[in-house]
Amino acid sequence: MEEEGVIKFQLHWQASDPALPETFRELELWRTRLRAIGGIGADPRRYGGIGFGNLSRRCAEGFWISGTQTGELQQLGREHYSLVERWDIAANTVWARGPVAPSSESMSHAALYDRRPDIHWVFHVHIPELWRRAAAQDLPRTPAGVEYGTPEMALAVQDLASNAPLPLVLCMTGHEDGILAAGQNANSCGEALLRAIARAPAS
């Protein structure tokens, strides 16, 4: 498995003003819930203590996403979100602005927004139990040899999302414990993820 939390795409980032409070209010509500169950955070026993998990929402200019290495923070403020304005999957390049650089998983989020205009929210968590039982739950799964943060992962995520009903929960097989959820609104996205997690121990 590759090291968690490393930005692998070429990033063009410009420091700018933080998001308005209403931009991240729902994101923060769901981040709190997902962090409480261990899907987002930083743990010295996991991935060498590197922070994990991120959330985003579509906007007119692109999408807002939690900043890189913010998993260890109990709560995020407006200064912890970055606006991804443009991306090029083939060139493995992201253009963003804000008070913090965007998450290392920005390309996977971008891939979903790019392919599906009806996706407005994407949650990326690390849930070992669900990841290990993805096949038993018949979750869509990216190929095992496709690593996180690469154009290949972004394209694999796009392929899985192309004709899937929403909300969608999928497993990033080549990204240890990585799970993506996508939906038209925050609650449908989050609740679908929680239902999948609840089923995992019995799978």
Rank of each mutant, 00 (worst) to 15 (best):
E3I: 06
E4G: 11
V6C: 04
I7D: 05
I7G: 08
Q10W: 03
L11N: 04
W13I: 10
Q14P: 08
Q14H: 15
A15P: 13
S16N: 14
A19P: 01
E22N: 11
E22S: 14
E22I: 06
T23R: 04
T23N: 04
R25C: 14
R25F: 12
E26Q: 15
L27K: 10
R31Y: 15
T32Q: 14
R33W: 15
R33I: 14
L34A: 12
L34N: 14
R35K: 15
A36V: 00
A36G: 11
I37Q: 14
G38K: 05
G38Y: 11
G41N: 13
G41P: 14
G41R: 14
G41T: 08
A42R: 12
P44N: 09
Y47K: 10
Y47P: 07
F52L: 02
F52I: 01
G53C: 07
N54R: 05
C59G: 10
G62E: 04
W64V: 00
W64E: 01
L73W: 09
L73Q: 13
R78V: 00
R78T: 00
Y81E: 00
S82D: 05
S82M: 04
S82H: 08
S82F: 11
S82C: 15
E85S: 09
W87K: 05
W87S: 04
D88S: 10
D88G: 06
A90I: 03
A90S: 09
T93S: 08
A96V: 09
A96E: 02
A96I: 08
R97H: 13
G98M: 09
A101S: 06
P102K: 05
A110W: 06
